[in-house]
Design a protein around this nucleic acid. Structure first.
Lengths: 178, 178
DNA sequence: AATTTTAATGAAAATAAATGCATGGTTTGT
DNA sequence: ACAAACCATGCATTTATTTTCATTAAAATT
């Protein structure tokens, strides 16, 4: 940006337009890809492509393959025999814009408690299903399944998963900011 | 496993031999695959196959694909433009219980797993209630009750009912000819 | 011991994913 | 502004991976 100071108005305008037209598409697309993969179980590029089309991105599988490579997205097998594309753990910071779409990070999760090997997540009224869905999709390794009521989620940890681990995972998924 | 107590020595010996002859090959192979992936950058199954051949394992790429799936090995892009197969963070024991049973014939039932004395049935979205109803009505002897969410059924077995029994019953209920 | 089930596997078919090449805009340097 | 170097992308193709089908050995059941 600093370098723009040295340039004349024409060029600055030029670059401005550029950022607004071309690059934005790719960046935006990568962001959207991240968001989709963060919250959904996607097992193939074709599948992901459909999701992107829903959101107005008209690209081919070739481009998507390159995008996934750029994002370092890995394809991993799940316990249920399917596959899932997963984002790298730490590399992708969540932008504020994206975070704002994630209503769950706005305090919908109120508490987490345990009874025996079961966990109970309390949420704001009406949020339980949404929260449960997030848990299902983002903690598949630690959580066997969830059952949601209106403001309560029953969380069944996998065998051998400690309370601490559950706490950590829930915290990670629903932490206020990233 | 408890059931083995009831069996005679012949059977026990028989099973022992089995584990030692056949299974050992596969288990050994999976171990070796893990070892290789732990220390080398492997970018394709063919490449890994070569390493295995070096070590005396004569299998095809199809089998390797299955092995990698069983080990939950993910293929991830590297910064240098190549790919690498990576082991999952914590090496989890493979749920043979789950792997050995297919619920796909019914379509709506995706998986069955256990945590403590509870069982979790995963279904396609929206099917949980219907599945739970079927279970309630057709497995009254084995199942105390169920609670259904949207895509998850919490199944509470009666006291003294084994996991194996539950697996069999669920399989039986949702079996369909192809 | 005979019969039925289950598990592992290879071969081949079916999918899925990666890539070479070409094209059309973009940016940079002059 | 012009030329050269770039980047993002689609298309076609290649390469890679997954799955289906059939077979065989092994294990459970009767």
């Amino acid at each position: 940006m600093v370098c723009c100071v040295r340039r004349n108005n024409y060029v600055i305008l030029h670059r401005f337009c550029y950022k607004y037209t071309i690059m934005k598409n790719k960046r935006e697309r990568l962001k959207v890809v991240s968001e989709i993969l963060k919250f959904q179980v996607i097992g193939s590029q074709e599948e992901l492509l459909k999701q992107l089309r829903k959101r107005g991105f008209e690209i081919t599988q070739a481009t998507l393959s390159r995008d996934l490579k750029a994002l370092k997205v890995a394809k991993t097998p799940l316990s249920n025999g399917m596959y899932k594309y997963v984002l790298p753990p730490q590399i992708m910071p969540i932008s504020d814009e994206l975070a704002s779409h994630n209503f769950t990070s706005h305090g919908a999760v109120l508490s987490l408690d345990f009874s025996g090997h079961l966990a109970i997540v309390k949420t704001r009224p009406g949020y339980a299903s949404a929260i449960a869905w997030d848990i299902d999709n983002r903690a598949t390794d630690e959580v066997l399944g969830t059952i949601a009521g209106d403001d309560t989620v029953l969380l069944i940890p996998r065998e051998g998963v400690s309370r601490d681990k559950i706490i950590k995972v829930i915290n990670h998924i629903f932490q206020e900011k990233n």
